[in-house]
């Protein structure tokens, strides 16, 4: 930029070889002398970048990296918030692996929730998106209606509503009663309570549906035209064209929703009144972690639980990415 006044591109100067005397290029801003060391050259001009990143750096080191390291350390201690932590080695992890029935129960509940809520939610989202994508009239209205629950869904108000819907004298049983069916108390029955949470999750299929709609719109219509000229049925077109081309979107939604399902907390907390009951049937992993950390102040043990969760989520994600190359179709 120093040669701006000469009107010649920088390459031309460089190609002209070493001049006999340094060119007297009038500079309109005084430049700092070029540092000669490797270190100096690397950091040349980095100042503003780091200034802009300053808040993020403080947050990253102070609230993310630092705490993550401390939490890893605490997971090997018996920290209880009052006394200073004592090193207990692998004891927390050993207890998790061998002798904690509540860990096993909460992991079971969480896996059950993930394995049922995610596929059902995605199937629903995909089904509705495919129907909407036929160019149906009133698409914006339907899309808005289906999206609303997923926008509202995570608030306490909806969990409160759900608690009432599936109570013994709740709305669902009132409706069933009109057909002469005597429904159970869904939320206080250990075999049904988890299903009320799964239904709540499926009810929020709106945002994966929107992502599916965006994906469906990317599929060129001439593919379908060619297929129907060749006499392919609608079902065949869906299986042979829509599904394969949509696999990257399905994959994305599956990973995001799975991670999200592992982290679910509020509905189980509100519907079970913070207990995870009846008989631990809604004891989500995060709820158990919360109880250990902030109910019993077993912070060391809760830290170990947190790291186990990280490992499980990481394994799930890694597994998805490893299997992805066998079923996810990337158009290249």
């Amino acid at each position: 930029m120093g040669n701006k006044m000469t009107g010649r591109p920088a390459v031309a100067i460089a190609a002209a070889g070493p001049p006999h005397h340094p060119p007297q290029v009038p500079q309109h801003r005084q430049r700092k002398p070029q540092p000669t060391s490797w270190f100096g050259r690397t950091w040349q001009g980095s100042g503003p970048g780091y200034m802009f990143l300053l808040p993020w750096f403080i947050g990253f080191f102070g609230l993310t990296l630092g705490p993550a390291i401390v939490s890893f350390y605490l997971s090997f201690t018996d920290f209880d918030l009052l006394r200073s932590p004592n090193w207990v080695g692998m004891a927390n992890y050993v207890r998790i692996a061998t002798s904690d029935p509540k860990f096993a129960a909460s992991m079971g509940v969480t896996l059950f929730f993930v394995l049922f809520s995610v596929p059902l939610k995605l199937a629903f989202a995909l089904g509705v998106a495919v129907v909407l994508n036929r160019g149906i009239r009133g698409l914006p209205v339907y899309r808005a209606v289906f999206y609303l629950p997923s926008l509202l869904g995570t608030s306490v108000a909806i969990a409160v509503l759900w608690r009432q819907l599936f109570a013994s004298d709740g709305l669902v049983n009132s409706i069933l009663a009109e057909f002469g069916i005597q429904g159970p108390s869904w939320i206080s029955h250990p075999s049904y309570s988890i299903w009320t949470l799964i239904i709540l999750s499926i009810w929020q299929f709106g945002s994966p549906m929107i992502i599916f709609l965006a994906g469906l719109r990317q599929i060129p219509t001439d593919m379908y035209e060619a297929a129907s000229l060749d006499g392919a049925s609608k079902l065949r077109q869906f299986i042979k064209i829509t599904l394969p081309l949509l696999t990257p979107v399905i994959f994305f939604n599956a990973v995001v929703q799975t991670i999200d399902a592992f982290k679910a907390f509020t509905p189980a907390f509100i519907i079970s009144g913070g207990t995870g009951g009846p008989i631990n049937s809604t004891l989500f992993y995060t709820l158990y972690l919360y109880q250990e950390a902030f109910g019993f102040f077993r912070m060391g043990y809760a830290s170990a639980l947190a790291w186990v969760l990280v490992v499980i989520i990481a394994l799930f994600t890694a597994f998805s990415f490893l299997t992805a190359r066998f079923w996810v179709h990337y158009d290249d």
């Binding site: 609230l63 705490p67 939490s71 982290k263 947190a306």
Partner: peptide, 9 residues
């Protein structure tokens, strides 16, 4: 990173 990891510290 799930927030649970940084929660307690």
């Amino acid at each position: 990173i799930p927030y649970h990891v940084t929660l307690i510290p």
